[in-house]
Each structure stands twice: as structure tokens, then as C-alpha cells.
Simulated assay, not measured.
Amino acid sequence: MTASRVDLPAVTVFAVSSVVLAWLVALPLWLRGEGLTDILLAPTAAAMMFTPALATVLALLVQRRTRGRRGARAVLRELGMWPLRPARRTVGVAVAMIVAMPLILIVGLGVMARTGAVTLDLTDFSGFAQALQTGVPAGIELPPVQLLVALQLASIPLAAVINAPFAFGEEVGWRGWLLPALRPLGTWPALLVSGAFWGLWHAPLILLGYNFAEPNPLGVVLMIVACSLFGVILGWSRLRTASVWPAVFAHGAFNASAGVGVLLVAADSPVPSAAIAGPLGVMTWVVFALAIGVLLVSGQFRGDRLQAELRPDPVRPAVAPVSG
């Protein structure tokens, strides 16, 4: 038996607390008024990533009113943290997602190159070489730029693991708790609503110009669309495996791959707007949509391919009925 309706009080507490906490964490950036040049930007963005985890704790506390006290094993299962079952599928999907993230961005660069938005240099990597030279003192000889590019790309899986604790802070909320909590709405509404809310949650940074250089409602809309599409892919990994870990490592790998354009773009390339050519820009949306299409055509969203056990435990009274 699975939950037949959305636990509205718990979802409301999660939504409100995650947004409020995100704004509280970002508040110093707004008070200091230095925008994206603020030295606190990076640590603030990292701290914000843990606010969905805190919101999840609050939502779980609210759920105790209707479900009663649950053991740690039940909570870990509901959040997709443990057990890893089936383990082979979970690990396989996690590895596939780590590999897919830089490929998505590289294919996006290819789309941009086809449209003339950017010029790529896949032999001499002139743009990256130029960037390296500007930061190296005279007289210091660097290794071949091709080797450095290869090392950068090869380090993405390691960076995905390093980024995992921060990505977990978000994913345990978005895909660990919220997506299953919204499953009574239907699979696709749950995927799209959780992804859209994920995008809206970024507003404290987006309104400073983060990601798209659009410190206005347009920037927030761009983020909502990007996260809705990306959220379908991350959400599929959660539904397919009943585990949050593939989404965690995919999120970490995507963040680690965000600078892949610096490696591949030519020195004389046009510089399109971040809203078009950024890691979450319109061109990447095209690749997200293509990836979702591949998953659809291959039947990956069929009910028999998704894991029912990720859904919340059935609602039960907080106090056992008195017999007799």
C-alpha cells in the first residue's frame, strides 16, 4: 500500500522553510551590497545547499503527527539513502549519471558551435591556453595544454565525489523527500513540480545575477525552466533506483563540469550571453530535452521500470487503536 494523497502540511513546511532558510543564508550578500564580487559568495552558495536538508528534517517532524514515530531504517528508506537495492542498478545508474553530466555540457557546446554561437578549438584548445598564460608568471613552462585538458576532464568523477556532501544537502530534499512526497500527484507532475520549485529556491542568488547575469525575474524564470528539465533527469534516476545517491553524484558531477566550456572554446570565439550559452542556458535545455526524449523512447518512465518502494510509507495513526 502507498500514500494516496499529498501530505500537504509536511510539503508546505518543507517549501516554506527551504525558501526562508535560503534567503536567511543569502541575506549577508544582500546587506553587504557587493553582489557577485563579494568574497562571501562561494561560502554562501555552499551553505545554501544544506538548507533543503534542514527543511527535510522539519518536514519529517511534521509527518510524525500522522505517521507516528518511525525508526531510522524507515526514514533512511523513505529518503532513498539506504538500503542500496538493487545495488548493481543503483551503482550502474550513478556511474552512468557521472559520465553523462559532462557529456550533456559538451553536446550543448556542439549545438552552440553548429548555430555559430561559439567557436570550438578541439586540437590546440586555444582559449584554455590563453587563459592559462594570463595567470602564469613569465618564464614558467606549462605542460602541453592537451594533457592539461585531458586531466581536467578525467578529474570530473573525482570532483563529483568531492562535491557529493554539498550535493547531498540539496538532493536529500528535492529528490530524496519532495519528489516521493509529490508522487500521489502522478509521476510527471511530481517530477516537474519538484524541479520547478528547485529552480525557484535559487532566487536569492539568481537575483544577484548568478548563473545568467540576469538579476531580475527573467533570471528566476530561466532557472525554473532549467531546473525543471534537469530535475526530470535527476528525478528519473531516483525513480529508477529508489535511491537518492545517483542524483547526488550526478548533481556533483554537473557542478564539476560547469567550466568545461573554458576548456573547449577557441580564443577568438564569440561570447554569447550566459542565458544562452551558460551551463544552464537555453542551449543546454535542448540537450536536457533530448536526453529526456531518449529516456521516454526507451521506456524508462514506464511504471514497471520505476521503483514503488521509494514512495512514503502508508499513513498510519500516531497512536495504536485500543482493542476490546
Rank of each mutant, 00 (worst) to 15 (best):
7 D>R: 03
9 P>T: 09
18 S>K: 03
23 W>M: 10
37 T>G: 15
40 L>K: 06
43 P>Y: 03
57 V>M: 09
66 T>K: 10
68 G>N: 08
82 W>A: 15
83 P>I: 03
89 R>I: 06
89 R>V: 12
91 V>G: 12
92 G>I: 05
92 G>T: 09
96 A>S: 12
104 I>Q: 09
110 G>W: 08
115 T>Y: 04
117 A>N: 04
118 V>S: 02
124 D>C: 00
127 G>L: 00
130 Q>V: 00
137 P>Q: 13
137 P>H: 10
138 A>Q: 13
138 A>C: 00
143 P>F: 07
146 Q>Y: 00
152 Q>E: 14
160 A>I: 04
165 P>R: 13
166 F>V: 14
168 F>R: 09
172 V>K: 05
175 R>W: 01
175 R>L: 00
177 W>C: 01
180 P>E: 06
209 G>P: 10
215 P>G: 09
219 G>Q: 13
220 V>E: 10
226 A>K: 06
237 S>W: 04
249 F>D: 03
261 G>W: 03
265 V>R: 13
266 A>H: 09
267 A>W: 02
268 D>E: 13
272 P>Y: 08
279 P>Q: 13
290 L>I: 15
292 I>L: 00
294 V>M: 10
301 F>P: 08
304 D>R: 15
312 P>G: 10
312 P>I: 06
316 R>C: 00
